[in-house]
Simulated scan of single mutants.
Amino acid sequence: MANLLGFSSVQPLLNSLSRETKIFLAATVGPFIHQGSDHLTDNISVLLVAGAYLEYECNRNSLYGFYLGVGYLAAWAPLTLGFTGAVGASGVTYGLTTWLLVHSISRPLEVAYDGAIDRRILHFAPVFFGLVKARETAAILSMMDGADDVTHFFGAFVGLLLGIYFVLDYHDIQITNL
């Protein structure tokens, strides 16, 4: 899009916009636009791996709702802190990987609880994928200085909470007041 509008890349296009326009873009279409092919490729890779796993384990509607919910909550988080916002699906990808981590850990725990090793033990593979992103998320805490860091961290945090919710629902576990 930037090239079609006569800009050398996305960054000069975004720099040419007013603060109000940047905020509007981040708040409305932020989770769907990206700052270049590398950014898009990185996010699509995570969406394919984590999204495919979670869609298979849960269902498509949960995945779509998760994308929209976490995508917009993560996009709006930096806006509430006074930043002009961030673009891209990075908040969603961090959220998906924390959901993936919670779910993929629950499956081997289920095997251990049942006392019988079966194909569910293969869920350890996505655990390692989720741990890589969890490590990146932990690293963000020590350097959180921009809208993108806020988006990544907030996406991971919301993903963790929703991941716990979906895992409890998946395993039909009800939390009652004690």
Rank of each mutant, 00 (worst) to 15 (best):
N3L: 15
L5E: 03
S8F: 02
V10R: 03
Q11P: 09
N15E: 15
R19H: 12
E20D: 15
E20H: 09
T21L: 11
I23G: 08
F24R: 15
A26L: 06
A26H: 10
T28H: 07
P31C: 09
H34N: 13
H34E: 08
Q35M: 13
S37K: 11
D38M: 15
L40A: 11
T41H: 11
D42T: 14
N43H: 07
N43L: 08
I44H: 01
S45W: 08
S45L: 13
S45K: 11
V46H: 02
L47R: 02
L48M: 10
A50E: 00
A52C: 09
A52G: 14
A52D: 03
E55L: 14
E55R: 11
C58T: 14
R60C: 13
N61E: 13
S62V: 14
S62I: 14
S62G: 14
L63T: 06
F66G: 09
F66I: 10
Y67F: 15
Y67V: 15
V70Y: 03
G71K: 07
Y72C: 07
L73M: 11
L73P: 03
L73G: 03
A75P: 09
A77Y: 02
P78M: 01
L79K: 01
L79I: 12
L81Q: 07
L81I: 10
G82P: 04
G82S: 02
G82T: 10
F83P: 01
F83D: 03
T84G: 06
V87I: 14
A89T: 09
A89N: 10
A89M: 13
V92A: 04
V92T: 04
T93H: 05
T93W: 02
T93C: 11
Y94V: 07
Y94W: 05
Y94S: 11
T97W: 04
W99K: 03
V102G: 04
S104A: 12
I105H: 03
I105P: 10
P108I: 08
L109R: 11
E110Y: 08
E110I: 04
V111T: 07
A112E: 06
A112W: 09
A112M: 09
A112P: 00
D114H: 08
R119A: 15
R120D: 10
H123D: 15
A125P: 08
P126L: 13
P126H: 08
V127Q: 09
V132P: 08
V132W: 01
K133G: 13
K133P: 13
A134P: 08
E136I: 06
T137G: 15
T137S: 13
T137K: 03
A139Y: 08
A139V: 12
A139W: 04
I140A: 06
L141A: 15
M144N: 10
M144Y: 05
D145F: 04
D145I: 06
G146D: 10
A147P: 01
A147H: 02
A147W: 01
F153G: 06
F157A: 12
F157N: 03
G159D: 03
G159S: 02
L161E: 00
L162F: 05
I164A: 12
Y165F: 09
L168A: 01
Y170R: 07
H171T: 00
H171L: 08
T176E: 10
